[in-house]
Amino acid sequence: MPRELAIEATGLVKAFGATRAVDGVDLAVPAGAVYGVLGPNGAGKTTTIRMLATLLRPDAGSACVLGHDVVGEADAVRGAISLTGQLASVDEELTGRENLVLIARLLGLGRAAARARADELLEAFGISGAAGRLVKNYSGGMRRRLDIAASLVVTPPLLFLDEPTTGLDPRSRTQVWEIARALVAEGTTILLCTQYLEEADQLADGLVVIDRGRVIAEGTPGQLRSSAGSGSLHVRLIDPEQRPEAARGLEQAVGPVVLEPDGAALSAACEDAARAAAGVAELARAGVALADFSLGRPSLDEVFLALTGHLAADAAPVPEEQPS
């Protein structure tokens, strides 16, 4: 079977006043996998999802979701998708069970079937102990799982997940990832918006990177990382004042240096352990005190720097850096 496209978008544009939140985005999302939309805060991810989920009408461009036009056949699109938004898309003033029964009834399940379905999902998602509690008293992880469960009352062919793990602890994050994998194994396509390269790495088969409303790269997570070099030495200083000295040392011993947004951290593209060791030794010789250091894969910041020439944090309007 040829790889069908679950989503095909061309030239999507959405402006809010003077802000061009989405500025000509093309997407080709293959069916049956997780496709990532990676970008920093304010890049236009949520706005893109809202257009694809028929919540916002594009100013220009067009999009087909599972063969239906998002503007002309919005109702057919809604019949085939589920949305787990960035803000919790559940009702905080209802209990977990009531939330699921509500969605089930709205989708056409009978009273008894709706209750049975709600209980089945609550059990599977580990929320049955809190089923009768108001959602506003849920932990972040439970709320997220309920939110996803509400999207699966009738398993959709296509699920939108907008930053599903932002603000979650590592364990809850892993649980969300497991659910996403199980869904794909059952044949659902997922469009995943995230700020974490790590998350895209874990889940996505393909992805686009967007920045300031535009697609700036497309490929597999591996390809994106290699565009920023295959590895990276991260160093955190005890005294941020020493950063210029540390940068000089690393530049000499390892290579080009990235100053991270955190004023005490910096990193340098670095392929092998021997070079990294040389870098750390150089810093010790120069009398730079380290809080910690690690040899890891490039961070999203580094990938961004490699792709755009500016740091992710620059995408949002931030005050000028004070002179050091």
Binding site: L107, G108, A113, L121, F125, L152, V154, T155
Partner: peptide
């Protein structure tokens, strides 16, 4: 989870 998401035919719209 896999069992719960496997078999859910879409009911007719209310």
């Amino acid at each position: 989870v896999r069992r719960a998401i496997a078999s859910t035919p879409r009911p007719p719209r209310p």
